[in-house]
């Protein structure tokens, strides 16, 4: 009976790879669950209103830059295009929590993880501001498509953006540094 070394290595590799994937997925769910629990128990009431207000201010500022006369009154944003209330769900907190969980769950050093979180979280905040501003224009130009754009398209695009950013972080930060140090 002949069993080649290559086949054994391939099987071992496959098993290890599956283990790495499983470890990542489990850790990801655990970290996200912990973040979610902390946020629901503590952060929702304390950070939630502050984040919503901050996002409203930033959206109004960008709208003013674009000449749409954006004004923020607490969490309410008014403009010459459209008016909207920024609620907690509009602050991309859940998407940031997904990104942080994915970065923490990936098997690499803590230095790379901190770099990933430090660069990724502001990027997601910026992407969310683009989302909010674009929704004002969509609400003005295509009012019938607003709900689809708000609930379906942008939610999915934000999750994809997180996946894209995560892969980009792996290539640009983790692998590049690992190759340099090897």
């Amino acid at each position: 009976m002949y069993i080649s070394l290559r086949k054994i290595c391939s099987a071992l590799n496959s098993r290890n790879r599956d283990k790495t994937a499983l470890r990542f997925c489990l850790l990801f769910v655990v970290v996200f669950g912990a973040e979610f629990a902390i946020f629901i128990l503590w952060g929702f009431s304390k950070i939630g209103p502050f984040l919503a207000e901050w996002n409203a201010q930033a959206t109004a500022w960008i709208l003013r830059l674009l000449g749409a006369d954006g004004q923020a009154h607490g969490v309410l944003v008014t403009s010459s295009l459209f008016s909207a209330k920024i609620v907690f769900e509009c602050t991309a907190t859940f998407v940031i929590m997904i990104f942080v969980a994915a970065v923490v769950a990936y098997h690499c050093g803590w230095r790379y993880k901190l770099l990933g979180i430090g660069g990724g979280v502001p990027a997601i905040f910026l992407a969310n501001l683009v989302r909010l501003v674009s929704l004002f224009y969509i609400g003005y130009w295509f009012p019938t498509a607003f709900e689809e754009a708000h609930q379906l398209a942008w939610q999915s695009l934000m999750v994809f953006f997180v996946l894209f950013l995560w892969l980009f972080w792996i290539v640009k930060v983790v692998h590049r540094h690992e190759h340099q140090s090897a």
């Binding site: 071992l12 590799n13 290890n16 790879r17 283990k19 790495t20 994937a21 769910v29 859940f94 999750v159």
Partner: peptide, 28 residues
Amino acid sequence: PGGQVFAVVIWCSLTWKHWFPKSGISIH
């Protein structure tokens, strides 16, 4: 958020070996 987490988990678990085919063993 549950739906978003689910999307990330199934995508990572099903496509992991296509993105990271050699992770985990050096002999390969």
